[in-house]
Design a protein around this nucleic acid. Structure first.
Lengths: 332, 332
DNA sequence: TTGCGTTTCCAAAACGTTTTCGGGTATATT
DNA sequence: AATATACCCGAAAACGTTTTGGAAACGCAA
């Protein structure tokens, strides 16, 4: 059947101890025996069993990627982050197994127990909301974790997110540089952490670049396309003199574009639009959407890096903000 | 530290054997002891170690999701399939760990060895191409596997893909029903299995619905947006009287739309377009793209189901075709 | 009483590794 | 020559489960 360390030992005429040592680069094994063992191992196509190793070492070199809601939207975002996580984790020799909160919830156990049962060394959490009951578990648990897009910090829990306040500032600054003086904001869901930050950045930038801040110019669109349409309509009803608007997501901004077309508003002459995210759609929609891009892939990489530093070097978790980038196209 | 089966045994005043049996629903344990054990286990918040179990059972309840190239395009496709795979595998009590061919390749070992080292019970392969050196390994290996979008069938390897020939037929039939009589085809990469099938469906449908098949009306666009633009230009140069064209991917079709706009062709009056895939973009682009949708999520589910049946019931692998669906929007 | 079948339980082996502790040689030091 | 010092190597325990092969207790029939 499977070729074990014992087979290698027998074939090389040494003990299993020596095989283990030779293959793992331990010090106290003669150079010639080491070579022989390596040769035999290769000959037999020997692959150490990760599960046996995990059992004795009490770590699995396996980290969980916890996704709160796989289905709902955010495809682009989640996928890129996932790839980033996978790539850098693979570099460090870790595997990643998918964990959905749904399955844990279904078994009526916390996700921490879920991960412990599987011997996961740590977990990267994404797609979770502030109002999710799991956040409490994340911050309190001793399972090393880093969460994406939610500023949760504790002894065993770090986070990485994009610098939303500066992202919002970039957007406003750009609109101002394009001549806008009366700028509105279509925010996402109110309970999302990122919404608050983008609002803060928006307000600060408006105060800095145009002077007065009119809170009647911020409306909420729930991150959806239809929400964006509705919200923009409401905004324009409140303040017809608005000449530029910042959307907290590209999807909402695209809704905004559609509203403008329906209302006969020229973009960007009558109304300048800038979105947030830089989803794939952004470059294809007409007019192409000016937006502030999130470094999705890099967020995954950074989260992974932080986690392995916690695991391997015992570093304390931290909060990392990644810089977004304004990409200007046609809408502003 | 960790609470083990031994702790439960001690606390319940029985042997570990009995605990194992009680918890796993084996027959020979008294009903009252079973209840006591269960109670104690709950009390102690005992979670059996999956890795210890894997070691002795020699199966891990863990299957690999092999992605040949995480980065390159296909985001939408891969993500939806991945979610489908995860969801139904979770239903059956399996975990899924991400495996990229890159990391295996980098370690200079076959992906089968890679999976075996990790004790994976099986593997679902996606994003692989006909010319990939790994296909040989897939069909020859004894590791139960099912591949997506590539018709590989062997003793331990099944596949699921969408019914591409019928998808192409739907597209052509729709174009014909819209009055098109001279229909072109912008195919994807020639070496992709799906390309061949779509071509076959296209040819059959053209013969059936319009009569003669002119092979000069099929060009290749490499699945990219720019490729689609170029290919359509070439097609129109060859045959200016073309009045409808079927693209083997939405991205190429969108390239086609852009070419039409640049060339001053009205869609669908001068030229009717239909794509393939139904990516997110399709509904947002203007005019909205008529296309044939692939059941991405269901493909993942079906692949998972097939693999589980192979593993649990010893069923033979099979080839499954899932029906695509024409979604008509504005371009045809 | 003996023999036998059931039921309920347990000790121990097994799964495939790593690691601790110590044993043996050869070489260097006194 | 005796002793210390490296240097290699191996036996065995451990990791946390499942499962095998009995064993004890009990009831029942002979």
């Amino acid at each position: 059947m499977r070729v074990t360390i014992r087979d290698v030992a027998r074939a090389a005429g040494v003990s299993v101890t020596t095989v283990s040592r030779a293959l793992n680069g331990a010090a106290d094994v003669g150079e010639e025996t080491r070579q022989r063992v390596i040769e035999v191992a290769k000959q037999l196509n020997y692959r150490p069993s990760h599960v046996a190793r995990s059992l004795v070492l009490r770590k699995s070199q396996n980290i969980g990627l916890l996704v709160s809601d796989f289905r709902k939207g955010g495809h682009h975002f989640l996928y890129d982050v996932l790839v980033g996580v996978h790539d850098t984790l693979a570099e460090y020799g870790y595997d990643v197994t998918l964990v959905s909160t749904d399955t844990a919830r279904q078994q009526l156990i916390g996700y921490v127990d879920f991960c412990r049962a599987r011997g996961l060394d740590g977990v990267i959490v994404m797609g979770i909301r502030l109002d999710d009951p799991y956040v409490e578990e994340v911050v309190e648990s001793t399972l090393p974790s880093v969460v994406i897009d939610l500023p949760l910090l504790s002894r065993h829990c770090g986070y990485v997110m994009t610098d939303n306040v500066n992202g919002a500032r970039y957007a406003v600054r750009h609109l101002v540089s394009r001549g806008c003086r009366r700028i509105g904001f279509v925010n996402g869901a109110a309970h999302a952490a990122v919404s608050r930050e983008r609002l803060r950045g928006f307000e600060e930038a408006v105060r800095q670049y145009v002077g007065e801040f009119d809170e009647r110019l911020v409306v909420y669109g729930d991150f959806t396309l239809e929400g964006g349409q509705r919200a923009l309509a409401e905004l324009l009803a409140r303040a017809p003199d608005v000449d530029g608007v910042f959307f907290a997501s590209d999807l909402m901004a695209i809704g905004g574009i559609q509203h403008c077309k329906a209302a006969g508003l020229r973009i960007p002459d009558d109304l300048a639009l800038v979105g947030f995210d830089d989803i794939d759609l952004a470059r294809f929609v007409t007019p192409a959407l000016t937006t502030v891009a999130q470094p999705r892939y890099e967020m995954g990489c950074e989260a992974a890096r932080m986690l392995v530093n916690m695991l391997q070097k015992g570093e304390m978790p931290s909060g990392t903000l990644l810089p977004p980038q304004l990409v200007v196209r046609e809408t502003a």
